[in-house]
Design a protein around this nucleic acid. Structure first.
Length: 586
RNA sequence: GCCAGCGUAGCUCAGUGGUAGAGCAGCGGUUUCGUAAACCGUCGGUCAAGAGUUCGACUCUCUUCGCUGGCUCCA
């Protein structure tokens, strides 16, 4: 049996498990109304409309009932009925009736097992006993058909596998994911905190977290300047008029903060940077010789996110985007996008964030003139440019409709986080609208005024989100250049404090972040704590070391380096930092 | 924002209709130690906030705030 066949079989079993769960729920709630019950990665869910709210205590009861049904080994019976019959059969199932009305076929498939009948395309396993290891995981609210306007149903999520062993492994894996959660590690390592008084979704970076952030920022600013960007600072707020001119206002209204009245003006916190950068470009006439005009900024942006959407550093209400806008001729677009992707890939490699990287060519929907600016020729041109770039790079990409910005298509660089979830980490967007709205122009070689295009891009994305990725990716054991404390000096006893202080001063002098653990504690205790803090180097110094000017180096991976001279260690650590080495051992 | 759950000391967590406990951290000592937790003592909580029920509420009810898992949305 090949893998695809195997997957299909597993999928069938999960789908059948959803039906069995529905039967179990029906036995407990005879008047239950049923939504849909599809399979998902690792399992299944089913949506119900019930007379009362489910509580977590219900899950074991439902699960027990399911096990009974599985044990009873009742067959799944398939039947074809006409829509008319189906309507009668599901007369008191409003959600099913809605689905029936929308089915194009005249015949409807129904599946029956035990006392439960469901409208379903199938296929299913033959008997309920084919359902192997499963577990109900959680209950959640879910809008009928995913729309906020519809009633909210109660969804039960379950997972199912062919063997108990696989199920156990899945559960263990979930525990590991929890341990790596950036919110947990952020607390353990004291990287960021929140304050109810400041507000939700507004993180405070602690001293240690700020070290990481500063290193990231320095890295990206230096790299961008090297690559020909003008790095600037523009204001965090601006007149509402600016965003009305840019055309963002109607699209972003819901995610922008309310307007502030200041004197005669109406100001607001910026939800994006582009128009600010355009104003820099537009501050004087530009020649074609100045193009491409690359403007970069570590830009704070403010977006009102619904409270339920906030999550640690992943979703915040104020974030800092490593943002840039490249104003250029359309003929330069391919080359500029190539360079932008080069930078993004380079930075991602330095950070070690490559897991599951793939590209999404995000396209608009020509018919949706509310959501996307109407200009078919411009969309065609831009889409071709982006597609050409991706093909030329032999990038692993796929196309997705209805994902573009209102002003043009984009390339999203997708990444998988530790939990296996895919997220947009970085993005490159083609914009043919901005220049029009702001009447951006350049004087071409023929002396005529022409309209440029704009490429929006983020290099290392939103700093907050990227930090969350890094925390989870490294489980807090950051590369040395990012580590808040790079070396801990651990005197064996306080007689060795003098030597420890001397090493500390010398390391500080060459820019190493070092601390001496001078507490009245045993060496073992200090090592343990340095280890828990994921400090990359521990320098244990006692009689021997102070006598011959050496250090005993312990790495946080538990490994011990052979005794080396302090000079040698200095050279080594300096090099690891400067080269931004990913792994601990050079 | 919506649905559900949770909120006890700085952290991790016990606990119960009769006005709170442990370990770690902190602090004060003792100890001067060789690669992941020395020992003794001690401080610490309007049990998220407010209102109600009750003779009595951390416990039951309601409201608010915050967090978590989903839904919707998204850098």
């Amino acid at each position: 049996m090949d893998n695809i066949e195997k997957d299909e079989k597993l999928d069938m079993m999960r789908h059948s498990a959803a039906h069995v769960m529905a039967e179990a729920v029906q036995s407990m709630f005879p008047d239950a109304k049923f939504g849909i019950g599809p399979t998902i990665e690792y399992g299944f869910y089913y949506d119900f409309d019930l007379s009362r709210s489910l509580s977590p205590e219900d899950l074991p009861l439902i699960e027990a009932k399911m096990k009974e049904i599985v044990k009873s080994n009742s067959p799944f019976l398939k039947e074809m009925v006409s829509k008319e019959q189906a309507r009668k059969l599901f007369a008191n199932q409003p959600y099913k009736l809605e689905l029936i009305d929308e089915l194009p076929e005249e015949q409807v498939t129904i599946y029956k097992q035990g006392n439960f009948t469901d409208m379903c395309r199938g296929p299913h396993v033959r008997y309920t006993s084919a359902i192997k290891a499963f577990k109900l995981i959680t209950i959640a609210g879910a809008y009928w058909r995913g729309s906020e306007k519809n009633p909210m149903l109660q969804r039960i999520y379950g997972v199912a596998f062919n063997t108990q062993k696989e199920l156990d492994e899945y559960l263990i894996r979930q525990e590991e994911i929890k341990k790596r959660d950036h919110r947990k590690i952020g607390k353990d390592l004291d990287l960021f905190v929140f304050s109810d008084l400041i507000g939700k979704g507004l993180p405070i970076f602690t001293e240690k977290g700020s070290v990481i952030r500063r290193e990231l920022e320095r890295f990206v600013v230096d790299e961008e300047i090297k690559r020909g960007y003008k790095h600037v600072y523009t204001p965090d707020l601006a007149k509402v008029e600016l965003y009305k001119t840019s055309g963002h206002y109607p699209y972003y209204k819901d995610t922008m903060y309310p307007v502030m009245k200041v004197d005669e003006d109406e100001l607001m916190l910026r939800p994006m940077t582009c128009p600010h950068h355009y104003q820099y470009y537009a501050s004087k006439p530009r020649s074609y010789k100045e193009l491409p005009f690359r403007i970069a900024e570590l830009a704070k942006q403010f977006r009102y996110e619904k409270s339920g959407e906030l999550s640690g550093l992943l979703r915040v209400r104020s974030f800092c985007l490593a943002d840039a806008h490249i104003i250029c001729k359309s003929e330069q677009a391919v080359d500029e996008i190539m360079q932008a992707l080069d930078l993004i890939e380079y930075a991602a490699n330095v950070l070690g964030l490559n897991a599951g990287r793939r590209y999404r060519l995000s396209l608009g929907d020509r018919k949706d003139e509310k959501k996307y600016y109407k200009d078919d020729a411009a969309w065609d041109f831009a889409e071709n440019v982006l597609r050409r770039v991706l093909i030329q790079r032999k990038a692993n990409f796929f196309e997705a409709g209805n994902e573009a910005a209102f002003y043009g298509p984009k390339i999203d660089i997708q990444m998988k986080n530790f939990a296996g979830k895919e997220d947009t980490a970085f993005t490159v967007q083609y914009d043919f609208v901005g220049p029009k709205r702001f009447k951006l122009a350049y004087i071409d070689s023929d002396g005529k005024e022409k309209e440029p295009i704009v490429i929006h891009r983020s290099s290392i994305g939103a700093i907050e989100r990227t930090m969350a990725f890094l925390i989870e990716h490294y489980a807090g054991a950051f590369p040395v250049w990012l580590s808040p404390v790079q070396a801990a000096i651990i005197p064996v006893s306080d007689q060795h404090l003098g030597y420890a202080r001397k090493l500390e001063a010398e390391l500080k002098a060459i820019g190493v972040r070092v601390m001496v653990d001078d507490r009245n504690e045993r060496m073992n205790q200090k090592i343990r704590e340095a280890q828990l803090q994921k400090i990359p180097y521990m320098l244990v110094v006692g009689d021997k070391e102070s006598a011959d000017n050496t250090v005993s180096v312990r790495l946080r991976i538990g490994e011990q380096l052979p005794v080396m001279s302090f000079e040698e260690f200095k050279k080594k650590i300096k090099q690891v930092i400067n080269d931004r080495v990913n792994e601990l051992k050079p």
